[in-house]
């Protein structure tokens, strides 16, 4: 069961408590989402499994833990919160979440990345219900999320924007322009979640172009900054609650995650599974490990 303190005014914050039962549910949901990620990417034959699996626990929390106020039957409902996937390449986990919430038929996942498909290789808002912004080219989603947060706040209410970004993505300059403007405008309705898996196409982020000290950078940029284990639901919920309570500045949650989480050979080989899909044999191994 989850309890929700409904905000009476926009200045009050929600709190969502993680009960044991909810945690059990979310773990099972995340497992199922990971299964769908492997299935759709093995079928597609190209795409990005590592980050998709690594962010499954956070997606389960946002879409199934009561955080995103949304209506899958009315994807453009004005009162909804927004989720922008700035690291758009991990869209298989977004698609799995949207399908599970009923935004579109599960069969769509079988045609991921194929011609005429609803599900593009990177998120396309005009093709897929529930996708809030077309992303893929790194950095832009952060800035688009800032625009949403500004517009939603200007219209009143307590609608929130969750922006997911990758640690490799933060090597771009553009997202820092966005972060600067988010802090300048004191966007406390914006929660940025960084997938800190220390992995990108060519290697470990630390080796390719070091972005540390990341927490210090966000603090210097004017963010309330929280570091968590991105696979620990109690830490995820605590951080999301803290973001809700934080007023006068945006929040950044640096989520330390394991690329390929849940599939042993991907966890072991890390960045090599950033943008490579398993063949049939390896997909079967992955599905077995995930209890499919």
């Amino acid at each position: 069961m989850l309890t929700m303190t409904t905000a009476e005014t926009s200045t009050m914050s929600r709190e969502i408590r993680l009960t044991d039962a909810l945690q059990t549910d979310l773990k099972e949901t995340a497992r199922k989402l990971r299964v769908e990620v492997i299935k759709m990417l093995a079928k597609a034959g190209s795409g990005h499994p590592g980050g998709s699996l690594g962010m499954a626990d956070i997606f389960a929390s946002l879409y199934f833990g009561g955080w995103l106020r949304h209506d899958p039957k009315n994807p453009l409902w004005e009162g909804r919160d927004r989720l922008v996937l700035s690291n758009g390449h991990i869209c298989p986990i977004l698609y799995a979440s949207l399908a599970a919430r009923g935004y579109f038929p599960a069969e769509w996942m079988a045609s991921l990345r194929q011609v005429d498909a609803h599900l593009q290789g990177h998120p396309a808002m005009h093709k897929t219900p529930g996708v809030e912004l077309s992303t893929g080219s790194l950095g832009h989603g952060v800035c688009g999320a800032v625009g949403m947060a500004l517009a939603l706040r200007a219209d009143g209410g307590d609608r929130r924007v969750y922006c997911l970004t990758g640690d490799g993505e933060l090597q771009e300059g553009l997202p820092w322009e966005g972060f600067m403007s988010a802090a300048h405008y004191k966007l406390d309705n914006l929660t940025v979640i960084v997938d800190r898996n220390d992995a990108q196409i060519d290697g470990k982020t630390t080796d390719i172009m070091n972005i540390e000290p990341l927490g210090d950078k966000f603090r210097a940029w004017g963010f309330h900054t929280i570091a968590i284990n991105g696979h620990d639901f109690s830490q995820i919920f605590a951080a999301l609650n803290e973001a809700e309570r934080t007023k006068g500045k945006p929040t950044c949650i640096v989520a330390i995650t394991q690329m390929g989480k849940g599939v042993s050979y991907m966890e072991k080989e890390g960045y090599k599974w950033h943008g490579k899909t398993p063949n049939a044999e390896l997909a079967a191994v992955a599905l077995k490990e995930l209890g499919a």
Partner: peptide, 26 residues
Amino acid sequence: PQRFFQMGIAEANMTDVAAGMATCGK
């Protein structure tokens, strides 16, 4: 003043921010 947004010397961000606002009906 409530509908004017000074974005500083950061034109790529300004353009993406405008796109985000457009998704919200602006």
